[in-house]
Design a protein around this nucleic acid. Sequence first.
DNA 1: TGTACATCAGTGAACGCGCGTTCACTGATGTAC
DNA 2: TGTACATCAGTGAACGCGCGTTCACTGATGTAC
Lengths: 228, 228
Amino acid sequence: MADPAKRGYHHGDLRNALVDAAAQLAEEGGPRSVTIRAAARAAGVTPTAAYRHFESHEQLLEATKEQAMEQMATAMREHVAALPETDDPVRRALGRLAAIGRGYIYFAISEPGLFRTAFEQGGSAIDGDIFEKHDAPFRMLVEALDDLVEVGYLSAAYRPMAEITAWSAVHGFSTLVIDGPLREMSQQLRDAAMGRMLLLLARGLADSGVSSELAAAVLSDINPGEEN
Amino acid sequence: MADPAKRGYHHGDLRNALVDAAAQLAEEGGPRSVTIRAAARAAGVTPTAAYRHFESHEQLLEATKEQAMEQMATAMREHVAALPETDDPVRRALGRLAAIGRGYIYFAISEPGLFRTAFEQGGSAIDGDIFEKHDAPFRMLVEALDDLVEVGYLSAAYRPMAEITAWSAVHGFSTLVIDGPLREMSQQLRDAAMGRMLLLLARGLADSGVSSELAAAVLSDINPGEEN
DNA sequence: TGTACATCAGTGAACGCGCGTTCACTGATGTAC
DNA sequence: TGTACATCAGTGAACGCGCGTTCACTGATGTAC
């Protein structure tokens, strides 16, 4: 029954097959391409069959969004994991923040269809209290910022809502680059712009006692050109 | 012939009427709602008639985007114009940058459909050289940053590509708030978050010689609660 | 000032498309005995 | 181990929808004489 190789009249794992197909569609054509009919077609099944597993088109899209978000979180974690080791806790914390940002941006650039799908209007909101941090990528960001405080780089006075600023900058950069007016930038210029942005962000977060040369040093430490 | 009140068999100003109708549709339902048929319907005309003025649906959408962008530029200019006068050139320049950002964000919040339409995939790109600054809102930003250098707040070393950082932060904030996970934030929290973001941005841009208290002072000068 | 006529800006009907969704159905599966 | 049968997961045909676009057309406009 749980044998995925088995394909007969009963599919066995149609729900997952539909979501995978939908993610594939999203990857190629963004959220607009995610339709019940197309997903069913790709899964080799009648459109009606999809209604055994999803009540409506909206539910399929919702599931696809979640999958896209998971793929994004995975990509980000890989960036963090690839960070070179260091004994300096400030460098480590700052490097981690930058890696999170770069992971986010590179995912958007390499998988624009999935990125757009993940943030299509009406995803899960961070409701009411911002501290109910339930999304994986968001949680990573929160932890990185907490780390920066612990380590003495970010003063407690500037900590509140810092995740929103960091997130806004990185998210805005991503969307301007994939959909917006920065679309036709060369990769070289784009990487440079990203570096400047992460640097200004790090400077904005730095405690007054911290030299801004530190941020510049840490950020230039990490070679940004190895990806995509 | 140019009498707009005249409505007979010949409309007289159908192209503009169609774009206006399309903008109205965009305002209500975003770019997806902009269709030739719906615009023609709203203008009281047959779909076919639209083809006298636009070659395709895509052209109508393009014209609608431009209109949305113009409305946005107007809203931003109003924010800048409403700035209190001051003799301190640094305060003036910094205040102007913040007003531009607030204008951008408030437009997105009060006219999300138009905002989404303006930035729908495939707008006019800032091609090749970033210094071909042909978009009105973008030009405002460039000028504000140039001002900040002239006035001694932003050092020349951090000037290059600073517009991208500023734009990214403000744009990202806007989209996260209208479409993304910050959708359900209270207005109060949202305004506070925006204030923090503009403050961190101003700190990131500040020359090392400039006290970060200045940025805080300038930004809190401007009462952010009067709008929307 | 009047008229013939080219041009222009609309109409109305129709096409094919892919979509979401519903209906009555049927073949496959697994379980009770 | 075999069988009857309920349940489950599909099929296939059909619906109505709004869309972009094209066709042959016609009424209104403006201009040359």
